[in-house]
Each structure stands twice: as C-alpha cells, then as structure tokens.
Amino acid sequence: MNAFHGNAAVKRDVLETLAGSTETPVAMAADQQAVLAWAQEMGLPGDLTLLLAGLARHSERGAGKACYDVLETVEPGADLSAVMRQWLIWAIGTMLVPVLSTPGLRQAADTVQRLLGAASPTPSDWRRVRHDLACIDVSDDDDGALATLSAACWDLERFPGAVDDILTSWHQIFNSRLHREVEWTEDVRAAFRILLRDATPQARAQAGPMPEPSDEIATRLYKTRLLDAYEPLLLAKDETLSRRGMQILRGPRAEISAFSDDALSGLVQRISGTPSAAGGLAHETCA
C-alpha cells in the first residue's frame, strides 16, 4: 500500500484538516471500523492508523496536532506496511522489557520480538507463542505486561483491531501501578463505592445532562464534569479515603500521556526509516 496513494495532494488535504485541531479528528476518533475505512481511503495501513489514533488521543499536544506531526513525516508513496511491527519491536524493547519483574517474561519478550521481526510468520506461529505466553505464571506486577505481549502476537495485517488490545493492556500496566501505590485493596474499594453511591445523585445533578454514549468527545467532557462534581462532595465525607478514590477514578493520565508521546516519537523514527516510492532511506532492520 502506498501512503496517500502516492499523491502529495491527498497528504496536503489531510494535513490541512488536521492543522489547528486540538480534538481527535472525526475519522480517527470514531469506532474501529471507521478508522480502518479512513485508513484505506488515505492509503495508510489499518494497524498503523489505529496505533496513531490510539496514541494521539492521549497526547499532551492534543490528538489533532499529534496526528499532524506524525503524518507530516510520511512521504507520499512510502510503503508503511512493516512500520507497525517495527514499532512494536522497538516499544517492547525500550518501554516494556525494562519494567518487567518476572524473569521468564524477558525471555518471552525476546521470543515475541523475534516473531514480529520474522519474514512471514504463519498463523500457527502466532498461535503457538500466544499459547506459550498463556502458560507463564507472572507476578501481579507483570499481569499487564503479559497481556500486552499476548496482544502483540496477532498478524496485525489480518487483524488490525488487535492494536486496540495492545494499547488497552499497556494502559493496564499504569493502572495496576497506581492501584498498588494508593493501596487500593478490596476493602478500600468497597468503602469508596459506598461514598460514591451516596454522592451520585448530587454529582449527577451538578454535572448536567448525560450525553449519548456514541458521542465520544461529549462523553469525555461529561466524565470530567462528573469527577469535578464528585471531588468536593467526597472530600467532605472522608478525606483520606476520597483522595485515594479520586486518584483511581482520574487514572494515571499523566503517565499514559507521557507514554503516548514517547511512543509517538518512536513511531516517527520508524516512519523516517521507511523508503519512499522514489527510493529514499534504507529500511530499518528488524531485531
């Protein structure tokens, strides 16, 4: 597949749409099928486009600007079909392996990286590695990392939707760490749930009408309004418990944003190593 169908005018139109936009553009924010349809229209690989949309959504720069910055580096006509796998090899090596605490999981990560770098893995190859991963016992700290490695073991050209699983499980790593840091045990969770239940009618009244579930931007804004309404109501009841609870509800947003921006930088580097239709730069070698 040639990026932007080899047409500089297509790239220019895309960048013009993205310029100045701080929210995720409609074609990249809607459901997975809409993103994939848009990717095909633009001559971009589906897996790579889902990755870009998923990372950009959490960028400090805003989704539109983050998408712009990445797509600006894409040469019309470039073959980006290997970029997603190259990015995964890099991301696992630089961002996942350093945080692993289960020794056997490092070896499993090596295996996954080798599989991603192989010329043409068969469906059986992917399945065998997934099966082996499912048999590994990991510490609670590594649950998210194991899920991320398993999510990466799919033929992403056939199953581009698995990219969403990769990002969701990667976020789970940050969520698990937060749960440990605030000592979010079952008892604490149950106590906080009672506080939340009692405050809900008042918080909802303050937050205003609930949007349609399909409206992603409005739903996100509503969630922020609702959390803002909850905070003073809960703090008035039990400050220690509520501070821990609000931390969990708001999630590790700063960490996910930092991860997303690092990951986007890595993506730009992988794209920059991709040859254009005219020849251009040499292919990056897979590990």
């Binding site: 059986s124 399945r127 065998r128 997934r130 991963l133 398993s150 073991c153 939707g161 698995a162 969701t168």
Partner: peptide, 16 residues
C-alpha cells in the same frame, strides 16, 4: 481482549 478469548479456547486444545 482477543488474546484472553484465544487463551480460553486454547486451554481446550493443544495449539496447531
């Protein structure tokens, strides 16, 4: 995730 569903299925049978 896909992998969690696949793991549930694969527990029933050895991989190909």
């Amino acid at each position: 995730s896909r992998s969690a569903i696949a793991a549930m299925i694969d527990k029933r049978e050895a991989p190909r």
